[in-house]
Every structure is written in structure tokens, then in C-alpha cells.
């Protein structure tokens, strides 16, 4: 199990690194691999750009810069991993106030 999580972590970061404009065929391979994990009940999530509040326990946050009421996840160090719809690994993220 630990090994699987390690592979998923690395793979999630790879997906992030490839960014949004990845080649269609690469996108497809990514989806295919994720589908295999999904069959095992494992799903990872990259909450990049999502709103952050202190009631979110799906991630552990490092707060960067000034704090205010409108915080956003700006960088991901580790993804959130679910197993059978329960979080087995909290994500590790950087959180910043929205730039005005």
C-alpha cells in the first residue's frame, strides 16, 4: 500500500508538471493509468486553485504571505488520495491570499 501511494504521489506530480496543454496522447495515458487505480478504489486529487479554509482537513497547508478571508491553494507538494471514498493521505499544499 505504501508503495502504491508513493507511485501515485509521483505520478500526480508528473501530471501537474505536464501542465494543462499536454499532448492528447499523453493525456490519454494519464487517464488510463488513473482508471486502473480507480478500479482499485484509489483516486488522487489535485486541488490547485481551490479555495482554502481552516475547516478543510483534506489538505495540510503552508500559508504564504498575508492571511485574509479569501485564501487559494497555489501549489501542491502532495496530492490528496482517497481509497474507497475515504481520505488515506492528506494533501500538502501552499496557500496564498488571492491577489487583489
Amino acid at each position: 500500500m505504501k508503495e502504491t501511494l508513493t507511485i501515485m504521489n509521483q505520478f500526480a506530480l508528473l501530471e501537474l508538471k505536464l501542465g494543462n496543454d499536454k499532448d492528447e496522447s499523453i493525456q490519454r495515458i494519464i487517464q488510463r493509468i488513473k482508471a486502473v487505480w480507480e478500479g482499485m478504489g484509489l483516486v488522487y486529487q489535485l486541488p490547485l486553485g481551490e479555495k482554502y479554509t481552516d475547516t478543510r482537513t483534506d489538505v495540510m497547508a503552508n500559508i504564504v504571505g498575508e492571511m485574509d478571508n479569501d485564501m487559494t491553494i497555489t501549489q501542491i507538494v502532495k496530492p490528496i488520495i482517497y481509497q474507497n471514498n475515504v481520505i488515506v493521505q492528506q494533501g500538502i499544499v501552499m496557500v496564498e491570499a488571492k491577489k487583489k
Binding site: 481552516d54 475547516t55 478543510r56 482517497y82 481520505i87 492528506q90
Partner: peptide, 19 residues
């Protein structure tokens, strides 16, 4: 239930509200 949200501990009164 999935562990992704926790309101924290709060004082309970007759009426409570939570996002």
C-alpha cells in the same frame, strides 16, 4: 465521513449554523 472537513470544536447553543 471521508475526513475532508472538520468544523472544529464550537460552543453549542440552541441554534447553530455552519458552512
Amino acid at each position: 465521513a471521508d475526513g475532508g472537513y472538520d468544523s472544529g470544536i464550537k460552543n453549542a447553543s440552541t441554534k447553530i449554523g455552519e458552512f
